[in-house]
Write a protein that binds this DNA or RNA. Sequence first.
DNA 1: TATTGTTATACTCTATAACTATA
DNA 2: TATAGTTATAGAGTATAACAATA
Lengths: 150, 150
Amino acid sequence: MAAQRTDPLTLEVVELIGTVVARYHAEYEQAAAEHALTGAQARVLGLLSMEPTPMRRIAQKLRCEPSNVTGIVDRLEARGLVERRPDPADRRVKLAAATQEGRSTARRLRESLEFAREPLAQLTEVERTVLRDLLRRMLGEDPAEPSPGP
Amino acid sequence: MAAQRTDPLTLEVVELIGTVVARYHAEYEQAAAEHALTGAQARVLGLLSMEPTPMRRIAQKLRCEPSNVTGIVDRLEARGLVERRPDPADRRVKLAAATQEGRSTARRLRESLEFAREPLAQLTEVERTVLRDLLRRMLGEDPAEPSPGP
DNA sequence: TATTGTTATACTCTATAACTATA
DNA sequence: TATAGTTATAGAGTATAACAATA
């Protein structure tokens, strides 16, 4: 285990990150609510707007049990934002896919995410580059499995 | 409204922050679960370990409706981690306060939050200072109301 | 026999509205 | 009358366990 860091500098950075996390979350939930979606529904819709995905795979991306995905996709499907398709290669599998309206909603959702603008607009390009490099190093440069959202 | 920033650099920084947010959240929930607490319970307990707080004030900190706090405090109280006290100054008010066991649990919870160590240990002190200053500027330096957690 | 998705169940969190006891 | 806390209710997310269809 790494050495315990409880110096004031580290503690302040952790607190600042906590504030960023809280603000990011609040804005994500708000953007979802403006489209009458819950956070979980928005995350799944964003995922499916990229490519059709088996139910099981959605659960892995969301880090939740597959049984939960059934309900979330049910609600998105009831609103016509998502549809279930058979997988020609394996008849056990159901592929969840965003409809055209679903993709449109996902796009507007992304655009309404203010987080990209407000806070980062405070920084110059050089500063954003420095921030990017620090975050990369912090996260250990392992972009194997990008997260589906907050 | 600020100018829309959709350049690759900004988009990458937003994605990196999203990854940080996801990891922070996952570790917070995991740390809470190790003490058989939900995320909401852990946040409230952390809050009350600092000082006794009126129910209404807890709701404001959590940004949720006061009626929800009743249930969360109920469950913490049933486990002996929190207690309700009258407010001598206003008999309508109930102050929720962490018990000694509650404070002990909150302290162990804080200590088990790996986030302070793992990711930030990758950075030198100079880098952590730069990161701190960038985050401060990003957040606009308004430490009026520190967030209660993720 | 193992895997995929679903159903059934129970718990927690959430918002809304109505209620009580104070102020 | 206004406020603090609670209760009642309904909806959503979550995990667990059991099930049908398919591999």
